[in-house]
Amino acid sequence: MANIASARKRARQAQKRYFLNKAHRSRMRSFIKSVTKATEKGDLEGAREAYRKAVPVIDSMVNKGILHKNNAARTKSRLNARVKALSQASA
Rank of each mutant, 00 (worst) to 15 (best):
K76Y: 07
N21I: 03
E45W: 00
F19H: 11
G46S: 08
A11Y: 11
K76W: 09
R10P: 06
V35Y: 08
R78H: 01
N80L: 15
N71S: 13
R29D: 07
S60M: 09
M1R: 11
S26P: 02
R25F: 09
A2N: 08
K53W: 02
A23W: 07
L79E: 06
K41E: 04
A7Y: 10
S87Y: 05
V35H: 10
L79T: 10
K33I: 00
A2H: 11
V62W: 10
T39R: 03
A23I: 00
Y51G: 02
A50C: 05
A91F: 11
Y18G: 00
V55E: 11
T39C: 02
K53Y: 05
H24D: 10
Y51L: 15
V83A: 08
R25K: 09
T36H: 12
L20E: 14
F19V: 15
E45T: 08
H24R: 15
K41P: 00
V35S: 07
K84A: 12
R12V: 00
L79V: 11
G42V: 07
R10D: 09
A89F: 05
Q13I: 06
S90Y: 05
K84M: 15
M1V: 14
E49A: 14
S6W: 03
L44A: 14
Q13T: 04
S6C: 01
K69Q: 15
G46L: 12
I4F: 08
K16V: 12
K22R: 14
A23Y: 10
N21A: 09
G46K: 13
R8M: 07
L44E: 07
F31K: 15
A7I: 04
R82Y: 00
N70L: 01
S30C: 05
S60F: 04
V35M: 04
A85F: 06
L67S: 01
A50F: 08
A5T: 09
Y51W: 13
G42Y: 06
M61S: 12
A38I: 04
Y18D: 14
M61D: 13
K69S: 11
L44C: 00
H24L: 14
R27M: 06
A5C: 01
V57W: 05
A50Y: 08
S30G: 15
R29A: 15
R27F: 10
N21E: 11
G65D: 03
